[in-house]
Design a protein around this nucleic acid. Structure first.
Length: 745
DNA sequence: CTAGGGTTAG
C-alpha cells in the first residue's frame, strides 16, 4: 500500500492530519480539536491522529469515545488506543482492548508487555511473552528485558538477556540502563566497556548515570567523548550542570548546541529558574521560538517554589492553552501558602480533573490540618491512586490522629514503600516509637523491602528509645542492604549511637562519611553535648567551621547546650552573639533557654534575667524554670517569685512548679507564703503527672509508668529494684547481681 | 533503550 495522491482534497486531509498530530504533541489540544472538527473529509488517519492527540493530553475518555464512534478502525487505531491507555496507566482497559483486537502485530504484543511491566505485573507480561508465536522479534524481547530492569528484577533481566537469540543495541542499552539508573556506576562502567558496539544512547545513559550520582566530572569526561552527541546528550549534560548550580556552564552548553528543540529551551529555562535567575529565565522564555505547555509550567512552578504566587498567577493568566499540569502547579502554589479558597476556586474551574490535581487539593487541606475537608474530597474521588491514599495517611499523622491514619492504611488494597514509610514516620512524629518498630517488622512480612528512608526512620525510633541493641541490629541490616553510604542513613546511625550513650561509636561512623552535611555535624555535636562532653562538642563545632560547613539553628542548640554543660560561659555567650551578627540567624526560644540556663548555673542571675527581658519572642516554661531554680539556689526571692508567677501562667497544672516555689518560701521562713502557694495549687487543680521511663533489654522495650499498673511485671520490677539498691550499698557479689537481672529476660 | 513541567514519605 502506497499513499496515493488523490487530488487537492486528499492533500488537504493529509496536511490537516499532520497538524493534529503536531498540536497534540505540543499540548495544544483545544486547537487540535478545532482542526479536527473543521475537517469535512475525515479518513482513518484523521481519527487515529485525534485519538493520539487526546491520549497525549490525558483525555483518555475522549479518545475512547472517538475510537468507538469512528466508522472503521485499522490496526493503528487499536494500537494507538492501547498506547494511550499505556501512557495513562490504565492497564485494565488496555488488556481488555488487546483481547478484543481482531488482528495483532508485533507492535501490539510489545505494547501490551510494556503495559504490564509498567504496572509491575511482571508475571502477566511474562505469560504474554511466553505465549507469543515463535516469530517474536527482538522488540518483544527488549520490552520484556526493559520491564525486568524497571522493576528492579535485574537477575531476571540478565537471565533473559543471556537467552536472547539475537541481541541488538537496544537490548544492550536496556541492560546498561539497569546499572546507570540504579546508581551502580562501577558495574555500569564495566558493562559499558564490555559492549562490542555503542551508540549515542549508550553514551547518554553513562552521562545521565554520572549526573544522577553527583559525579559531574565523570559526566563531563564522558560527554566530551561522545562521537556524535544528540539533543538528548546536550540536554542531559545541561541539566547536570543546572542541578549543581553551575549555571554559567549550563548556558555555555545551551549556546553551543548545534540543534535546539523545545526540550532544550525548556531545560535551560528550568536551569535559570532552579538557580533563581528569574530575569534570565523570563528573557529566554520570551525569546524561544515556540513555547509549549512545559515552558509555561516550568515558569509557573518555578515562581511557586519560591513563594512568588502573584508572578506565577500572572503567567497562568497569560497562558493561551491552560493545561492541567500548569493549573495544578498553580493550585500547589496556593496550597503551599495556605490559600485554600483560591486553590479551591481554580480547582473548580478545571474541566477534566485528573488524579494529580485531586491529590494536590487533598494535600492542601491536609497541610492546613483540615482533615474533614480532605476526607470529603478523598471520598468523592472516583479513581484514586497510591498517592491519594498516602496523602491521607500523612495528613492524619500530622494532626496526631494515628488511629485514623491506620484506618486508611488498612483500607488500602495495595501499598507501596511510601505508604509504609509514611505510616512509620507518622508513628515517629507522634512519639509512638514502638509502633514504628512494629511496622518495620510487619512491612517485611508483607514482602516490602525497606529502603534508605525506612531505615532512617527505624533508627530514629531506636534513637528516641535509646534502644541500642535494636539499633545495632538495624546497623547490621543496613550494612547488608547496601544503604550504608546513604547520607540520611549515616546521619540517623550517628544520632542513634549518640543518643544511646555510644557517642564515640558515633564519632567513628562520622569519620567514615565522605561528604558530611550540616545534619551529620549537628548529630555528632548534639551527641557530645548530650553525653556531657562539652569540650569535644565545641571543638567539633570549630572543626565544622574550618571545613566550610555553615551552622544552622540545630547546630547552635547543640553547641550552646554543650557550653552549658561544660560551664563554658564566655564561649557560650560569644557563640550566641555570633548567631545574629555572623550567621544572621534569629535565635529561637531553645537557644535563649540554653543561654539563660548557662548564666543561671554561673550564678549570673541578673544577666540572665536581663536577657529574658530583652527577648523578642515569648519565654517558655524551660526558661522561667531555669530562672526559678537558680533563684532558689542563690536565694533571690524577688526574682524567684517573678519567675514562678510566669511559670505558673504557662503551666498552671504542673505540681513541681508549686513545690519549688513553696520550698523557696520555706527556706526563708515565710510560712504564710508557703500556705498561699498551697492554696493556689489546689485552686488550679494541679495534679502530679505520672512519671514515665523505659529500658531496652534483650530486644524488648519495657515501659514504666509510676502511676500505672499496665506493665505486667511492675511488682517484680520493684522488688528487683529494692534488691539492687541493697546490693549497691554492699558491692562485691556479682553473681547474685546477674541472676537478679534475669528476671527481665 | 536516552533529555524538559504538575501530587505523597525522609
Amino acid at each position: 500500500m502506497r499513499i496515493r495522491l488523490i487530488g487537492e482534497k486528499g492533500r488537504q486531509v493529509f496536511s490537516q492530519n499532520l497538524k493534529i498530530t503536531r498540536l497534540g504533541k505540543l499540548g495544544r489540544i483545544e486547537e487540535a480539536i478545532h482542526v479536527f472538527s473543521q475537517l469535512t473529509l475525515k479518513n482513518v488517519v484523521s481519527y487515529n491522529s485525534m485519538i493520539s492527540a487526546y491520549c497525549k493530553n490525558g483525555r483518555i475518555s475522549d479518545a475512547r469515545r472517538l475510537f468507538d464512534e469512528m466508522p472503521q478502525r485499522n490496526l493503528v487505531s487499536w494500537n494507538s488506543m492501547i498506547a494511550g491507555y499505556l501512557h495513562n496507566d490504565k492497564v485494565l482497559e488496555a488488556s481488555e482492548l488487546f483481547d478484543k483486537m481482531p488482528k495483532r502485530d508485533l507492535f501490539s504484543w510489545a505494547l501490551m508487555i510494556t503495559c504490564y511491566t509498567r504496572n509491575g505485573e511482571l508475571e502477566k507480561a511474562r505469560k504474554l511473552f511466553d505465549l507469543l508465536p515463535d516469530k517474536r522479534d527482538t522488540v518483544c524481547w527488549n520490552a520484556m528485558i526493559a520491564g525486568y530492569v524497571k522493576n528492579m528484577c535485574f537477575d531476571d533481566a540478565k537471565k533473559l538477556f543471556g537467552e536472547m537469540p539475537v541481541k541488538n543495541l537496544v537490548s544492550w542499552n536496556s541492560m546498561l540502563a539497569g546499572y546507570t539508573k540504579n546508581a551502580e556506576m562501577h558495574l555500569g562502567l564495566q558493562f559499558f566497556e564490555e559492549m562490542e558496539k555503542r551508540d549515542v544512547v549508550s553514551w547518554n545513559l553513562m552521562v545521565d548515570g554520572f549526573v544522577e550520582v553527583g559525579d559531574l566530572d565523570s559526566a563531563w569526561q564522558f560527554f566530551k567523548q561522545i562521537p556524535n552527541p544528540n539533543v538528548f546528550s546536550w540536554v542531559t549534560m545541561l541539566c547536570g550542570f543546572a542541578r549543581n548550580g553551575k549555571i554559567v556552564e549550563a548556558r555555555r552548553l545551551f549556546d553551543q548546541m548545534p540543534h535546539r528543540n523545545a526540550v532544550s529551551w525548556n531545560a535551560m529555562i528550568a536551569a535559570y529558574v532552579q538557580n533563581h535567575h528569574y530575569d534570565e529565565a523570563n528573557r529566554l522564555f520570551m525569546d524561544m521560538p515556540e513555547r509549549d505547555s512545559v515552558s509555561w509550567t516550568t515558569m509557573i512552578s518555578g515562581y511557586v517554589r519560591v513563594g512568588k504566587i502573584g508572578e506565577a498567577r500572572g503567567y497562568l493568566n497569560r497562558m493561551p492553552f491552560k493545561n492541567i499540569a500548569a493549573q495544578t502547579a498553580m493550585i500547589s502554589g496556593y496550597v503551599q501558602n495556605k490559600r485554600m479558597d483560591e486553590a479551591s476556586q481554580l480547582f473548580s474551574q478545571i474541566g477534566i480533573r485528573d488524579v494529580v490535581c485531586w491529590n494536590t487539593m487533598i494535600a492542601g487541606y491536609a497541610q492546613c490540618g483540615r482533615m474533614d475537608d480532605a476526607l470529603r474530597l478523598f471520598r468523592q474521588m472516583v479513581y484514586k491512586d497510591l498517592v491519594s491514599w498516602n496523602t491521607m495517611i500523612v495528613g492524619y499523622a500530622q494532626v496526631g490522629q494515628m488511629d485514623e491514619a491506620l484506618k486508611i492504611f488498612e483500607e488500602m488494597g495495595e501499598r507501596n514503600i511510601i505508604s509504609w514509610n509514611s505510616l512509620i514516620t507518622g508513628f515517629l512524629q507522634n512519639g509512638l516509637y514502638l509502633d514504628a518498630l512494629k511496622s518495620f517488622v510487619l512491612m517485611q512480612k508483607e514482602g516490602k523491602k525497606p529502603d534508605q528512608s525506612t531505615f532512617a526512620c527505624g533508627l530514629s525510633a531506636c534513637a528516641n528509645l535509646a534502644a541500642l541493641q535494636v539499633g545495632k541490629q538495624f546497623h547490621h541490616l543496613i550494612a547488608k542492604s547496601g544503604y550504608v553510604n546513604d547520607l540520611f542513613v549515616s546521619n540517623a546511625l550517628i544520632t542513634m549511637y549518640a543518643k544511646s550513650g555510644r557517642v564515640f561509636d558515633a564519632e567513628l561512623l562520622f569519620k567514615d562519611i565522605n561528604h558530611a552535611d550540616v545534619v551529620s555535624w549537628n548529630s555528632l555535636i548534639g551527641g557530645f553535648a548530650l553525653n556531657g562532653y562539652g569540650q569535644e562538642a565545641v571543638k567539633l563545632f570549630e572543626e565544622m567551621l574550618i571545613n566550610g560547613v555553615v551552622p544552622d539553628l540545630v547546630t547552635f542548640v547543640g553547641v550552646l547546650s554543650a557550653c552549658c554543660h561544660a560551664g563554658l560561659v564566655d564561649c557560650g555567650l560569644e557563640l550566641f552573639k555570633s548567631m545574629n551578627e555572623v550567621y544572621s540567624v534569629e535565635p529561637l526560644v531553645e537557644h535563649y533557654a540554653c543561654i539563660v540556663d548557662l548564666l543561671c548555673r554561673a550564678g549570673r542571675l541578673e544577666e540572665a534575667f536581663n536577657m529574658v527581658r530583652g527577648m523578642k519572642i515569648r519565654a517558655n516554661a524551660g526558661i522561667w524554670g531555669a530562672l526559678l531554680g537558680a533563684s532558689r539556689v542563690h536565694q533571690n526571692l524577688e526574682l524567684g517569685r517573678h519567675a514562678a508567677e510566669k511559670l505558673l501562667e504557662l503551666e498552671p497544672h504542673k505540681t513541681s512548679n508549686y513545690v519549688l516555689l513553696s520550698h523557696m518560701h520555706a527556706e526563708v521562713g515565710s510560712w504564710e507564703e508557703v500556705e498561699s502557694v498551697r492554696v493556689s495549687m489546689k485552686k488550679s487543680r494541679a495534679e502530679k503527672q505520672p512519671g514515665c521511663s523505659w529500658i531496652e533489654l534483650k530486644n524488648q522495650i519495657h515501659v514504666f509508668l509510676s502511676d500505672n499498673q499496665l506493665q505486667p511485671r511492675t511488682t517484680e520490677v520493684c522488688n528487683t529494684l529494692t534488691a539492687l539498691t541493697a546490693h549497691m550499698r554492699n558491692p562485691g557479689d556479682l553473681s547474685e547481681f546477674k541472676s537478679l537481672l534475669k528476671v527481665f529476660y
